[in-house]
């Protein structure tokens, strides 16, 4: 299936054509949206990590980022709101050789999907989770998300958000993720590098890609257009690799710390499972639940 990208002569071919569903273009994302950049970084990382695309399954949930699965030419699943990690867990456990990627948004993964996020991290299911954080529910028109900074406006916080946002890297680390990094979609090269590293890692890896919604978040909060926001992140991002994740809170228009924060080893779910399996096999039949006796 894989075609080598033709670089000569045919200029009009998209460099990532073999990894994108060109028959679905144009995509639905608005101008100034960073999700496309995150997708580009991901496809580039897939090539850099030298992974056979035929072995990769990508799962998305609902929302703007939830549409990613529909544009990437891999085995791709667009599932229900908040459940891509659970769906992907099924794939990984049933088919351990598959490389599983969950690509979804902050509302999907952190709000309704929060439970699956922490549990998959705890189990250390071998998957890469890319969370594009746009600070808001964009698909439904700009409601407050668990990542909306304090006092920022959204349609369901018309008087300013009253809940502090999640610090996603801290939550990921405290629930057991083995690889945690954060970039903005402005850091396309570093984001690609992190995604490459994470793809090569065994275990639950989380890469947060910050890309505030240029449609709702910036408009409701009067932050200018896409270029203004890019400028803001250009000027206000500080790169601190290895920073303690507890210091990574994001405020309203405050400095954002990016970098790779966690890179550790823990046995993955499949490894633990296999170990258990070999123990059971050597110990003979598991006694419990084997009540039915032969007549």
């Amino acid at each position: 299936m894989m075609e080598t990208p033709k670089t000569d002569e045919k200029q009009e071919i998209h460099p990532m054509e073999n990894l994108l569903r060109m028959d679905r273009m144009p995509h639905i994302w608005c101008p100034t949206c960073g999700i496309g950049l995150a997708v580009t970084a991901f496809t580039a990382a897939l090539e850099k990590a030298n992974i056979d695309p035929n072995t990769v399954s990508i799962v998305s949930g609902i929302g703007c980022t939830g549409r990613v699965a529909g544009y990437v030419k891999l085995d791709s699943f667009h599932t229900t709101h908040g459940r891509p990690i659970a769906f992907a867990t099924g794939i990984k456990v049933a088919s351990p050789k598959t490389k599983v990627v969950v690509f979804s948004g902050d509302g999907d993964l952190m709000a309704i999907g929060g439970n699956h996020f922490i549990h998959a991290a705890r189990r250390n299911i071998d998957m890469l989770v890319v969370c594009v954080n746009n600070f808001i529910y964009a698909m439904t028109g700009g409601q407050v998300a668990p990542t909306t900074p304090l006092a920022a406006y959204a349609t369901t916080s018309p008087y300013g958000c009253v809940e502090p946002p999640f610090n996603i890297p801290y939550l990921a680390e405290s629930s057991g993720a083995v690889y945690v990094a954060r970039w903005t979609t402005l850091h396309i090269r570093r984001l690609t590098n992190s995604l490459t590293e994470a793809l090569q890692k065994t275990g639950f890896s989380v890469v947060e890609a910050i890309s505030p919604c240029g449609m709702y978040y910036s408009r409701i909060n009067r932050l200018g257009d896409g270029l203004d926001m890019m400028r803001f992140y250009h000027d206000n991002v500080e790169i601190r690799h290895g920073e303690d994740t507890k210091n990574l809170d994001i405020g309203f228009q405050t400095k954002i710390i990016c970098g790779k924060f966690v890179d550790r080893e823990r046995p993955s779910y499949n490894e633990r499972y296999n170990q258990w399996l070999s123990e059971v096999k050597t110990a003979g039949r598991h006694s419990k639940g084997q009540k039915g006796s032969k007549k």
């Binding site: 659970a86 769906f87 992907a88 867990t89 099924g90 456990v93 049933a94």
Partner: peptide, 16 residues
């Protein structure tokens, strides 16, 4: 972790 994810995982596994 719950029944929601149990069935989600089953659907994922079925596609394998």
């Amino acid at each position: 972790e719950d029944e929601i994810s149990a069935l989600a995982a089953v659907l994922g596994a079925s596609w394998t």
